[in-house]
C-alpha cells in the first residue's frame, strides 16, 4: 500500500505555509508595499492548494491500484534532473549526509578561522579523507590557497573576513 502523505505532498504543505505567511504579513504594510505580496501570496496559496488536491488524488489512486504507476506520473521533469537509484540507496544516503557535514564543516571553518586558512585546509582534508595521496592533496590545497590569496585578495581586491578565533588571538 502506498502512503497518502508523500514527500512531495509535505513540500506542498511547506509552500502553503510560506505563501500564507506572505499573504498574512502583507496586511501589516501600507498600500504600496502591500499590493505585490498580496498578489504573490494569494496566487501561491491557490496554486499550491490545487497541487495538494492533485497530489492527494494521485496518491489515493496509486494506493487503490497499488501499482504506484499513477503516482509517478509527475516525476519526469523537462526542467530539472531526476534522482538516480545510486543516490537513494543506503550507501547513497550515507554519502549525502557526509557531504552535508563537510559543507557545514566548511561554513564553521570560515566563521572560526576565516577564508584564507579554512578553504585550503578544507580542500586538503577532503582529498585526504577520500583516499587521495599526500602529494596531490598538498598540491591542490596549495593551489586553492593561491587562488584565495592571489586571485581574490590581491587581483580582485576582495577582502575576506578573518575568523572569530583569528580576531581573538591575532598572530602579530
Amino acid at each position: 500500500m502506498k502512503r497518502l502523505i508523500t514527500p512531495s505532498v509535505i513540500v506542498s504543505f511547506i509552500f502553503l505555509g510560506i505563501f500564507l505567511y506572505v499573504l498574512i504579513g502583507a496586511f501589516s504594510f501600507s498600500s504600496m508595499p502591500r499590493l505585490f505580496p498580496l498578489v504573490v501570496g494569494g496566487a501561491g496559496v491557490v496554486v499550491v492548494l490545487f497541487q495538494i488536491i492533485l497530489g492527494f488524488r494521485k496518491a489515493y489512486r496509486s494506493r487503490a491500484t497499488d501499482s504506484g504507476a499513477i503516482q509517478d506520473q509527475d516525476q519526469g521533469m523537462a526542467f530539472d534532473f531526476e534522482v538516480t537509484a545510486d543516490e537513494t540507496s543506503r550507501e547513497g544516503v550515507r554519502i549525502t549526509i557526509e557531504q552535508f557535514v563537510w559543507v557545514f564543516g566548511l561554513l564553521l571553518g570560515l566563521w572560526l578561522i576565516g577564508f584564507y586558512i579554512s578553504v585550503p585546509i578544507f580542500v586538503f582534508a577532503y582529498l585526504m579523507r577520500h583516499g587521495e595521496s599526500w602529494k596531490l592533496s598538498g598540491i591542490l590545497g596549495a593551489i586553492m590557497a593561491v587562488v584565495v590569496w592571489g586571485l581574490f585578495h590581491e587581483l580582485l581586491n576582495l577582502p575576506f573576513p578573518e575568523g572569530v578565533l583569528v580576531r581573538l588571538f591575532p598572530w602579530d
Binding site: G44, Q51, L54, Q75, G76, A78
Partner: peptide, 19 residues
Amino acid sequence: ALSGKAPLKGIAVGAFGLA
C-alpha cells in the same frame, strides 16, 4: 508551466521565487 508533467509545481516554485 513548462516544467514537465507537473505544471502546477513549476508555477508554485515560480511564485516561491517571487516571494
